[in-house]
Simulated scan of single mutants.
Amino acid sequence: METTAFEALLRRDRAIMICRLILISALGWCYVMTGAGTGMSMRAMTRIAISPGAFSSDTAMPQRWTGVYWAIMVAMWCVMMIAMMTPSAAPIILLYARVTRHEQKSGRMADGVVPTVAFACGYLSVWLLFSILASILQFSLARAGLVHAMLMWSLNAWLSAGMLFAAGLYQFTPYKLTCLRQCRSPAHFLSSHWRPGHLGAIRMGAKHGAFCVGCCWALMALLFVGGRHELALDRWLGDASAC
C-alpha cells in the first residue's frame, strides 16, 4: 500500500510539473509572438523580412534607450530564453523531482516539499543573466549602427560573416562538447553535482543552466545575423535545436 501511494504521489507530482512547464513555455511563446512589449508582432516582422526594401532601418528605432526600454528589451530576451529552453530543461527538472522523492521515501533525505521550483529558478537565473548581457550587446551593436535596433538583424556583412564563422567554429571546441554531454545526460549530471536542500537545488539548477548556455550561446548569437523573427520562427517550427 505504501509503495502504491508513493507511486501515485509521483504520478501526481509529475503531471503537475509537466503542466507547469508546458504552461510556462506556452505563455513565453505567446509573449514573444505578440511582440514582447515592443509594439511589433512576429507576424509584422515576418512581413518586413519578406519585403525589407519597404522598411527603413530607422523605423521603430527609439531615440535613446530609456530605463523603460531597457526593461522591455531584457524582458523580451528573458522570456524568449524561457520559452525556448524550458522544454530542453524539462527532463532534468522532472528527474530531479523524482530522485528527491525517492530519497525522501528511502529515509536518506528529510521529508518536506521537493525544491523543484528552486532548481528551476536556479536554472532560469542563468538565462536571466544571459538576457542582460544580450541586451547590452544589442544596445552596443545598435548604437554602432551594426544591427537594426528593433528587429536585431545585421546591417553589416562583416559582422554577419564573423558571427557565422564563430558559431560554426565553436561547435568543434572541447568546451562545447563538454557542455553538450552534461545537457544530454541528466542522470549523470545529478549524480555528479548533487547538493541537498533548497540552496543546493538552486546551485545545481544554476550549474546546469551554465552548461546549457555553453551549448546554446552561439545559436542565440545568430539572432543578430537573421533577426528576432527568424530565430523565433525556426524554434517554433522545430528547425533549430537548443541542446
Rank of each mutant, 00 (worst) to 15 (best):
L233Q: 11
H102L: 14
C19S: 15
A49I: 07
L94S: 00
M40D: 06
G112V: 05
R12V: 10
A90M: 15
A71S: 15
R47T: 13
R43M: 08
N156M: 09
C215Q: 05
L129C: 09
A54Q: 06
G200F: 01
Y175D: 09
I136H: 06
A221D: 08
D58S: 07
V32E: 00
P62Y: 11
M33K: 05
P62F: 15
L9P: 05
E230W: 09
L177S: 06
V32M: 07
A187M: 09
C121L: 14
C243L: 13
L124P: 01
L129M: 10
M84K: 01
T59H: 08
A120C: 07
R101G: 03
D58E: 11
A110Y: 07
C30T: 08
V225S: 07
S41D: 02
L164F: 10
E7F: 05
S25N: 04
A161T: 11
W158R: 14
H102P: 04
W65H: 05
S160Q: 07
M17N: 11
S131C: 10
S131H: 09
I136Q: 15
I22R: 04
T38F: 13
F139M: 08
R98D: 15
M73T: 12
I93C: 00
A15T: 12
I18M: 03
S160P: 02
A157W: 15
A49G: 03
M61W: 09
G35W: 00
L124S: 08
S51A: 15
R14T: 13
A90P: 03
D111W: 14
G35P: 01
V79R: 00
C121N: 10
S135R: 00
I48Y: 02
G145V: 08
S41G: 08
D13L: 02
F165A: 11
Q171M: 12
M150E: 01
A36P: 01
A26K: 04
M73W: 10
Y123C: 03
L151R: 11
M40L: 13
A206N: 06
F119R: 00
W194T: 11
T66H: 07
A8C: 06
R101E: 12
E230Y: 06
A166V: 04
V117Q: 08
V113M: 05
M33E: 09
A206W: 05
F165Y: 12
I24Y: 10
A71V: 10
A5Q: 09
S57R: 13
A8G: 09
V126Q: 10
Y123L: 02
H198F: 14
L10W: 08
G122S: 05
P87N: 06
V99A: 12
A210N: 01
G227V: 01
G122W: 12
W29H: 03
Q63M: 08
P87M: 12
R98V: 07
W127Y: 15
F224C: 03
P174F: 14
K207S: 07
C30I: 15
S135I: 00
P87W: 13
A120V: 04
L128W: 08
W70G: 08
C215L: 05
P87T: 07
M81E: 06
F224T: 00
L9N: 09
